[in-house]
Design a protein around this nucleic acid. Structure first.
Length: 488
RNA sequence: GCGACGGUCGUCCAGUUUGGUCUAGGACAUCAGAUUGCCAAUCUGGUAACCCGGGUUCAAAUCCCGGCCGUCGCACCA
């Protein structure tokens, strides 16, 4: 069994994630639920993201609508660029990208945006047939990757957002004013996005409904190297993968050598590196890959993907795009609003440019699980070596036995700890079995109440990875956890 | 979306070829009790599944059709 299947199995068995609507036969692919364990872990991942990125960098966070009006996506370009013209064979049902297929067969240069009529005309003119069965094609249609929704009784057209960042863009003028913003200003959002993938696959890796954590940095394009806080991260080691070769280089040198375009980009790639190194991702198995012109999104001028190596190949976790003024310019044009702001440092009016860190949370969760998975052959155990801030359960509270008052003592300790920490109480089965269960969901610590506890009010704390134990006073447990976990 | 293969307790597997003692069996996990008391011990008992919908048949887990899901390949991946 490969690692992907192993992690999948563990996820199903231990409540990390599982298919949505699974008791019904008409459940669709590409929709997954986080179970209790996975939800805890996801929440903690997001909390760490807030701590290491938002709070560290004084970013501000918003929470926007998932349904947005049609105009937003006219402006964003998604209605045009997100729609593929398709032709379907009348006979065998095979479907093709119309523009690509026509270009290939007719040898004609096909303009990007052909109307359905024009496509049908060309199909007829060249007498194009299905390559597999020689059948004729039905009238062309358009497949849009956005989910359309109808608003109110008049069924006004609107869409589920295909990326969370659009609300950051359209909210920008109000946010900038009310929060007394100054460039560069980073605005973040975490939430669901929706894409009607043709073939969703591999559980959390390619979903139709998924979590993004996006950061949009509004900046003055003339001052991308004027960033005093860059000093704090200039020594961060970045692993860049550019045109098929690796460059492991500190942030400062990466800018000096021209691998990265400016300090602002280098700064945020550094923050991202520092964040992921605290999630338990094995950083040696990550890289920033520069995208070629063909791969870049339609809005990006410079693009790096933060990728992580897993058993299913290199996975894109974060898209780091320099979107220039593409978004604000289009939104300004379509909405007829003035989105310029004044940069007090040179008193000039500027339409901010954008640099974004668009993070896939679900893929990150999967990658962390896979990088944390460990089979201890010698001790015959499966361990998720999750770092404490990410672990769904931080500590298990286990009475060694349930008699002689140990159960009551354990429950007393549990009832106090559970208010401040993700705590799990378990008295069923042998102590060894309970340790194993906790290890499988990545709990870093187990606290055991034994007979000595009744005499001197100490408990043992067992370390998941080493299986070593240490005696701690009950009154010191909170301090112990705070210190080791660095939550506070 | 196309093609190939597949879908049985939480998990893994037996049963499907050749329809009928299958009222669906086992292992692990889980729950309850007993016992032990620091690393998946033992014993007893329990819960728990034929993906969904049609059809053929006296009889369907088994055969047929459709759907859904999964894996792989192609295409797609803003």
């Amino acid at each position: 069994m490969n690692t992907y299947d192993t992690v999948m199995k563990l996820a199903l068995e231990r409540g990390f994630y599982f298919p949505s609507c699974e008791i019904y036969g008409d459940a669709h692919a590409g929709f997954w639920e986080y179970g209790p364990t996975g939800t805890n872990m996801k929440n903690k991942f997001i909390e760490l993201w807030r701590r290491e990125l938002l709070r560290r960098d004084d970013m501000i966070e918003i929470d926007g609508s998932q349904i947005m009006s049609k105009s937003v996506f006219i402006a964003s370009g998604h209605l045009d660029n997100f729609t593929d013209p398709v032709i379907k064979c009348k006979n065998c049902g095979a479907t093709f990208r119309a523009d690509k297929y026509i270009a290939e067969k007719s040898g004609k240069e096909i303009p990007e945006l052909l109307s359905g009529n024009e496509i049908d005309k060309i199909v007829e003119e060249y007498n194009l047939r299905c390559p597999t069965c020689k059948g004729t094609f039905l009238e062309s249609s358009r497949f849009n990757m956005m989910f359309k929704v109808e608003i109110g009784p008049s069924k006004e057209e609107a869409y589920l957002r295909p990326e969370t960042c659009q609300s950051i863009f359209v909210d920008f003028p109000r946010i900038f004013k009310t929060m007394r913003g100054r460039l560069p200003l980073a605005v973040a959002q975490v939430g669901k996005s929706f894409r009607n993938e043709i073939a969703p696959r591999q559980s959390l890796l390619r979903l139709r409904e998924f979590y993004q954590a996006e950061i949009e940095v509004f900046c003055n394009p003339n001052r991308l190297n004027d960033l005093s806080k860059f000093e704090q991260v200039k020594d961060t080691s970045l692993k860049l993968f550019i045109k098929n070769s690796y460059h492991t280089i500190c942030a400062e040198d990466a800018v000096r050598e021209g691998y990265l375009p400016n300090k602002l980009v280098a700064y945020y790639l550094s923050l991202l590196t520092l964040f992921y190194s605290k999630t338990g991702i094995i950083m040696e198995r990550t890289r920033f890959r520069q995208l070629s012109d063909e791969e870049k999104a339609f809005y990006a001028s410079t693009a790096f993907d933060f990728e992580v190596e897993t058993s299913v190949g290199w996975l894109e976790l974060v898209a780091c795009n320099y979107r220039s003024d593409y978004d604000l310019k289009k939104h300004s044009m379509i909405s007829k609003q003035n989105l310029n702001v004044i940069d007090p440092s040179d008193n000039a009016k500027v339409l901010p440019h954008l640099f974004e860190l668009s993070m896939g949370i679900d893929r990150s969760i999967y990658s962390i699980l896979e990088h944390s998975y460990y089979e201890d052959i010698e001790a015959k155990r499966v361990v998720l070596r999750l770092v404490p801030p990410i672990a769904p359960i931080l500590i298990g509270v286990l009475p060694l036995v349930t008699k002689d008052g140990l159960r009551e003592k354990a429950q007393d300790i549990y009832s106090k700890l559970k208010l401040d920490y993700s705590t799990f109480y378990d008295e069923s089965g042998s102590i060894g079995r309970r340790y194993r269960r906790l290890e499988e969901i990545g709990a870093p610590f187990a606290l055991t109440i034994d007979n000595q506890t009744m005499k001197d009010d100490t408990v043992t704390i067992r370390y998941r990875d080493t299986m070593l134990q240490e005696r701690v006073k009950v009154s010191e447990v909170s301090n112990f956890l705070d210190e080791i976990v660095e939550l506070k």
